[in-house]
Amino acid sequence: MILRNFFKDMKSLPKYKCLIRNLVSRDLTLKYRASIMGYLWSMLNPLMLIITYIIAFKYILGMRSISRSQIIVGVVLWTFCATAMMSSVKAILTSAPLLQKVTFPRVIPVISTQIFCLIQHLIVYPVLFITLLVLKKFPNFNWLYVFLILILLNIMLFGMGLFLSTVNIFYRDVEHFLAIAIRILFWFTPIVYNISILSERRFLKYIIAYTPFSPFVRSMTAVLCDGHPIPVECGIQMVSYSVAALGVGIVCFYSFQHRFVEAI
């Protein structure tokens, strides 16, 4: 039943592709209309974080294990994950006025939010690549793995978005819990430090290696900063995490979607 509804929605997506495009472009226009800096805002936030972290960790704490390029790549990817989660948790609630008046697949607001966040992430890439060139990280064929990482990451974020937006309808404070969880998760993901410095603390290293976003950040830094392919254990983790998140998300979303309109 759940799967049948899911596939029915997926089949009707071509019919609603114009709606998805309009919703995404609405979000983009609303974000950038009447702002002088326009899309530079998308870069300002990660940029400020990067500068702060580089000063704090490289220069004040003098950490050797992490390079500037690793912090940059990590923070850019993390910003995407955090904004995607924070926006998709509200996706269904904010489109309540539409859902209460017209029938269209309930999953569409979640999809359009995800695409909106992805676009904002992708427009940072040109600047990211130029920065990496300045830091003498030159592209090689392994950089193509970026596509694979992004595809898997988006599958996982989409699954999480389905789950979070569903739960948030019935318990509105999930949003606030999530904000705290994201803060904590940041430090439990190897972004501003390298996981190798934990070799003496086996238990902590174990936890950090298995938090949801660490395989993605680790693979991204391995590919972009070191020019290596994706580490095998990270690859396995990424695939299993994204499949699991998608599965949980679909089951959760489609078991409750018939109650959405009455609950919002």
Partner: peptide
């Protein structure tokens, strides 16, 4: 916040119409 024209496109696409 959107203009009338943008809203025409948005609300027609809600019903499932193509561009």
């Amino acid at each position: 916040e959107l203009t009338g024209l943008e809203n025409v496109y948005l609300s027609a696409s809600l019903y499932g119409y193509q561009r």
